[in-house]
Design a protein around this nucleic acid. Structure first.
Length: 702
DNA sequence: GCGATCAGTT
DNA sequence: CACAACTGATCGC
């Protein structure tokens, strides 16, 4: 693995210096029109709904379902199980789920629901042998019936508006959060909280209404509102940052906001939508002036530098051409941003992976996040010595545990991607997902050996590339994708992908399409265009939600759902947190689409006595990391048979208390305070070696 | 046309 | 139904 060192490529800071100081923390006026350098949003052209498949009565005949084994102990023959190979890996990983208050909290919704059925909802029934016209229509037709957007009102619905006026909201909830659950009384709300009022008659309820009573606590007010729930949660121990320091300013229009108790029906027009929301505390790194993936909150007070962890819409949301602050990201993400969001290039700064640099006297290292291409985690070393890791979106892996930076520094505070923070989320390694996919497709090809097959694979703008790359390689397929995604892929500088790509869809046997197009009716529609050239279409849908889904095989259209996740599974999360053993953990993932409501990581994962067993064993890369990474060799030093170190061996005595050691760090320092960029200033930190014992790196949890 | 927001989709 | 990450529509400027 990399030693988290090397050179960095940053722009001279003096170019940048003028910007943060002179930017007013008010909203910037729209600049004069620039050329259309790329749209973030897809064109919103009116889509005409065709009548579907009038003559397509025979589509779903002849289902010869190939059963995919979902049992993990019975992988396909051709497949090597990672956790079998590494005997000590996931297999020996046994942790009881704990009935912590947070878990209860998270599962409240679930517990009130009907018993779950397993697996994804089928698009069409397995037993059905033909799909009637009306059936198809019923799937396709129900577009949304739009209600006018202004049609919000407060009737018996009380809306606590978290987002309109941060100053006031802060007063409400800004008290220092206690470590215990806070009970909020109805009076608290009625005396202080503001609501959104609108003059319209028709109430528009969101799909899900919340009765917050049981959810917050028995004494919580009975109010139906998603936002109220959020407000309450801000006081919960999940948010550990005092809001006073972090709440974002917004430009809430006073007319939008009136206090509870005012007459709701006479009403102030809702007017323009609020410009920005209140910034949740986890968007700003404690003890710094850095914001991570927080672009939809206007100019966040006291924030001088912004970071974008990866180019996915839910993370760059709010990032527009008007953005005028220093913005840091990986080179890949930077290429994507430059391609799709016409931000002035002078604000874009690239961080090379594993190469630390300094900003405001804080050392920052970008670490590969094992999410989508260009996704990074951020490691901050504060002048106080405190270390903070922000995972961004990530998929924890054994390989990550090999990173020296995690061995050389204790993580005091962990901002964690808790997307799958529930024990029900368990899925296999990506390589296993791919193996399963290939096996299914191989079988499909065998059964339809004489047929001409058009392959379709679902994808986001970026992400899931490994799936279709494996398909293309295995079956020697030429690939085409939609122009927008093609532009994105070209930014990835991933030669193996580009080798496979063709500009013309007619020359390609594998089409990469937006996930949303992989529904059965849309595939039928899609296939019409190619029906003269192909006999069948096989769609592969890779998603974390495809667990236990069965392939649907039709006469023409077949769909295979593949369990494939770019986020950590529950167990991977737990393992990672236990490995790092941070002092505190803050979740960065909202639950129920409420920015202020995030998951709570079980304290058991990081508040245990003693040090993690792994640390006592010294530095241990997983064997796969070691074997696959020839670069590690220069850093390795065989010091005895059966013992090795991945760190330069310098001085036996310079061990930390916990037995860890530190490798050489090369740090290019940029002094933001005086605006100068010391030419290649390098700070050398040299510390001691690591002790390597065996590769039993996974036994420490047992 | 742009940006914000919401609903709907896999 | 869960979720992430869109896509598409609408609204206000």
């Amino acid at each position: 693995m990399s030693g988290n060192k090397g050179k960095i490529r940053l722009k001279p800071l003096h170019e940048l210096q003028s910007t943060p100081e002179h930017i007013e923390l008010t909203e910037l006026k729209t600049p004069e029109k620039k050329k259309k350098a790329g749209k973030v949003r897809a064109a919103t052209t009116q889509k005409k709904h065709k009548e579907l498949y009038k003559n397509d009565q025979q589509i779903v005949a002849n289902r010869t379902a190939i059963k995919r084994s979902t049992r993990k102990d019975q992988p396909p023959n051709n497949q090597l199980r990672i956790d079998s190979f590494f005997k000590s890996a996931a297999k020996t990983f046994k942790v009881e789920t704990l009935p912590s208050p947070s878990t209860t909290k998270l599962n409240i919704n679930t517990s009130q629901r009907k018993p779950k059925q397993k697996g994804r909802k089928r698009l069409f029934d397995e037993e059905t042998t033909s799909e009637s016209e009306s059936n198809l229509k019923s799937v396709r037709l129900p577009k949304r019936a739009h209600l006018p957007r202004k049609a919000k009102t407060v009737m018996d619905l009380v809306c606590i508006d978290l987002c309109s006026d941060p100053e006031d909201v802060r007063e409400v909830k800004g008290e220092s959060p206690s470590s215990e659950k806070t009970i909020i009384t109805k009076e608290d709300f009625q005396s202080q909280v503001f609501v959104t009022i609108s003059p319209q008659i028709e109430p528009v309820y969101s799909k899900r209404q919340y009765r917050s009573t049981e959810k917050i606590g028995s004494q919580a007010p009975v109010v139906e509102s998603k936002s109220l729930l959020a407000t309450a949660k801000v006081q919960s121990p999940m948010v550990e940052i005092p809001l006073q320091n972090l709440a974002g300013k917004t430009s809430g229009t006073p007319s939008e906001i009136i206090a509870v108790g005012a007459s709701s029906k006479e009403n102030v027009p809702i007017g323009r939508r609020r410009k920005s929301r209140l910034c949740p505390p986890y968007k700003v790194i404690q003890g710094t002036t850095f914001a991570v993936d927080g672009f939809q909150f206007g100019d966040i007070p006291n924030v001088t530098h912004y970071f974008l962890t990866h180019y996915h819409a839910d993370h760059y949301v709010g990032l527009t051409r008007k953005f005028q602050h220093p913005l840091y990201m990986s080179p890949t993400t930077a290429r994507l941003v430059r391609t799709f969001i016409p931000i002035d290039n002078k604000y874009i700064f690239e961080m090379e992976i594993d190469n630390p640099f300094k900003l405001n006297n804080i050392e920052i290292t970008a670490i590969d996040a094992n999410h989508c291409p260009g996704a990074i985690m951020l490691f901050f070393k504060l002048p106080s010595g405190e270390c903070i890791l922000h995972t961004g979106d990530f998929r924890a892996s054994f390989e990550m545990e090999s990173l020296p930076i995690f061995w050389n520094y204790n993580v005091d505070l962990l901002y964690l991607d808790t997307t799958y923070l529930s024990s029900k989320y368990e899925f296999c390694h990506q390589t296993e997902s791919i193996d399963r996919t290939l096996a299914l497709v191989r079988e499909f090809r065998k059964k339809n050996a004489l047929k001409r097959i058009l392959y379709v694979c679902g994808s986001y703008i970026i992400g899931k590339e490994k799936v279709w790359q494996a398909l293309a390689d295995e079956f020697n397929l030429s690939v085409w994708t939609e122009p927008h995604r093609r532009k994105a892929i070209d930014c990835l500088q991933w030669p193996e992908l580009n080798l496979r790509l063709y500009d013309n869809e007619d020359n390609a046997d594998l089409h990469i399409l937006t996930m949303g197009r992989l529904s059965y009716p849309r595939l039928v529609e899609y296939f019409e265009k190619f029906s003269s050239k192909y006999d069948m279409l096989l769609a592969i849908r890779p998603s974390g939600w495809e667990k236990d889904s069965k392939p649907s095989y039709g006469k023409k259209i077949s769909i295979i759902g593949v369990e494939y996740s770019e986020h950590s599974s529950y167990k991977e999360l737990e393992r990672f947190v236990r490995f790092l053993k941070p002092k505190r953990v803050i979740s960065t993932v909202p639950v129920n689409r409420d920015l202020f409501l995030t998951g709570k990581v079980p304290e058991k994962w990081y508040r245990f006595t003693g040090i993690p067993a792994m640390l006592s064993n010294g530095y241990q890369p997983s064997i796969s990391t070691y074997l696959k990474t020839p670069n590690t060799k220069p850093k390795c030093k065989i010091i005895a048979t059966g013992t090795m170190t991945l760190s330069p061996f310098k001085n036996e005595n310079e061990h930390f208390d916990d037995g860890r050691s530190e490798i050489i760090d090369l740090v290019s320092e940029i002094d933001a305070s005086n605006g100068t960029t010391p030419p290649n200033k390098v700070i050398k930190v040299e510390k001691t070696p690591s002790r390597i014992t065996s590769d039993a790196s996974d036994d420490w949890l047992a």
